[in-house]
């Protein structure tokens, strides 16, 4: 596993002066961020600061007003629905949601195999074998034939991760993927994420788990009121914040 990260280069993500408004409210006010292949970035910040919006701009779920986003060799520009570029980005950049959004009418296995079969056009047998392998990795292979309704929250979120991995992405966008879980099940999910990090995936995770951010993230970015208030290594940002904004936020979060 360890030497694999050298073989599979993660995805570089460059965000340049990204601006996004809803009506006359500016949600993102010119965000610049360069993320290197294989980095794990924790995105923290106060509620309403624009974290979710930023992630959604990266895979084209949200159209932005200014600036550009480069994911690998695909570039998205402001105010355009470049569907071909977006489709390519979505294949290399998986997304996992706070509320799972598994497909309730499909079994666990079908949830994972759906995109390989319908989007990549893999043959059903191959896709299922690979899906079982992925479920094995998140320790859920014996739940293959259950419906999502029959799973716990932590199990659902692990299925969602397997589902995102089924497209063989080079990066993952995780939006508060443990917020809906109790402390114990949180742990199962975070363990899976740490495992993925070893594969060399580029990961951007929005999180309120300061402890986990410190342990797992190569970089911590604090987004507040649509601006990057502070960024650096976990030690830099969390233990010795320089800006007043960061101090205020961390004081509230760490209590």
């Amino acid at each position: 596993m360890a030497n694999k990260s050298a073989e599979i280069p993660g995805l570089a993500i460059h965000i340049t002066s990204l601006k996004k408004r809803h009506g006359d409210r500016e949600i993102l006010r010119g965000v610049d961020l360069r993320i290197h292949p294989g980095q794990t970035v924790a995105l923290i910040g106060p509620s309403g600061g624009g974290k979710t919006t930023l992630l959604r701009c990266l895979n084209g779920l949200e159209v932005f007003d200014h600036g550009s986003v480069r994911v690998g060799d695909c570039t998205l520009n402001a105010l355009s629905g470049q569907s071909i570029e977006i489709a390519r980005i979505r294949r290399s950049l998986g997304m996992i949601f706070q509320d799972f959004q598994l497909f309730p009418h499909l079994t666990v296995l079908e949830n994972v195999a759906a995109a390989p079969i319908w989007v990549l056009g893999e043959n059903a047998k191959e896709a299922r074998d690979r899906s079982i392998h992925l479920l094995d990795r998140v320790k859920l292979s014996e739940f293959s034939n259950r419906k999502p309704m029959q799973l716990s929250g932590g199990q659902k979120q692990r299925v969602a991760i397997a589902r995102a991995l089924a497209l063989k992405p080079l990066g993952l966008l995780c939006d508060e993927i443990t917020s809906a879980l109790d402390p114990e099940t949180k742990h199962e999910v975070l363990a899976v994420l740490e495992d993925l990090k070893r594969d060399g995936l580029t990961v951007i995770m929005v999180t309120h788990e300061i402890g986990f951010a410190k342990r797992a993230a190569d970089r911590v970015v604090l987004l507040a009121e649509g601006n990057i208030a502070e960024e650096g290594t976990a030690a830099e940002v969390i233990d010795s914040p320089k800006t007043e904004r960061a101090c205020k936020f961390l004081a509230r979060v760490l209590g």
Partner: peptide, 14 residues
């Protein structure tokens, strides 16, 4: 829910 559309879109489905 709209989230189903988005989850599918994020998986590259048209």
């Amino acid at each position: 829910p709209q989230g189903q559309w988005e989850a599918a879109a994020a998986l590259g489905m048209t």
